[in-house]
């Protein structure tokens, strides 16, 4: 976990330095802002991982772990689910409504809401299978 954190933090630090140098040197706001924001994307998850890596034991995958240590319950993975397709279809209609008319937002939003409710309910049951 420490290594993951370090990679993100070093990337964030690099972008912060590069963004500052670029912004001061060029005086161009869009690019300077975008690189600094890139730095934030390094710092935000990076510092979260760092915070956690100091508060948890070293995971088996971060040391010479034995395969048996990973045996057992990993997580509940839904075996099958229709809701990704429903959500995708809803997004499709929503985007088409930008082109062909706002009425397409009605089926689009309908599918999205259905997928959101259905997907959450499915997660509570722990997947369909």
């Amino acid at each position: 976990m420490k290594l993951e954190a370090r990679i993100l933090l070093v990337l964030g630090l690099f972008f912060a330095i590069m963004g500052t140098v670029y912004w001061i040197w060029s005086g161009e706001n869009a690019g300077g802002m975008m690189i600094i924001a890139g730095g934030l994307l390094g710092f935000l998850p990076g510092s979260y991982y760092w915070w956690w890596s100091r508060r948890m034991p070293v995971r088996p995958e971060d040391r010479d772990g034995d395969v048996t240590e990973g045996a057992g319950f990993v997580g509940a993975f839904p075996g099958t689910s229709i809701f990704p397709f429903t959500l995708g279809a809803g997004a499709f209609f929503a985007v088409l409504s930008l082109v062909f008319g706002f009425w397409l937002m009605v089926p689009g939003l309908g599918l999205i809401v259905w997928a959101a409710i259905g997907g959450v309910a499915e997660s509570r049951r722990g997947g369909t299978q």
């Binding site: 993975f77 839904p78 689910s81 809701f83 990704p84 397709f85 959500l87 995708g88 279809a89 997004a91 499709f92 985007v95 088409l96 997907g119």
Partner: peptide
């Protein structure tokens, strides 16, 4: 995130069709 993964594919397919 298996379901998010499926959603990625559906967005890609519908994007291609679009």
């Amino acid at each position: 995130f298996p379901r998010l993964n499926a959603l990625s594919y559906w967005l890609y397919l519908t994007g291609s069709i679009t």
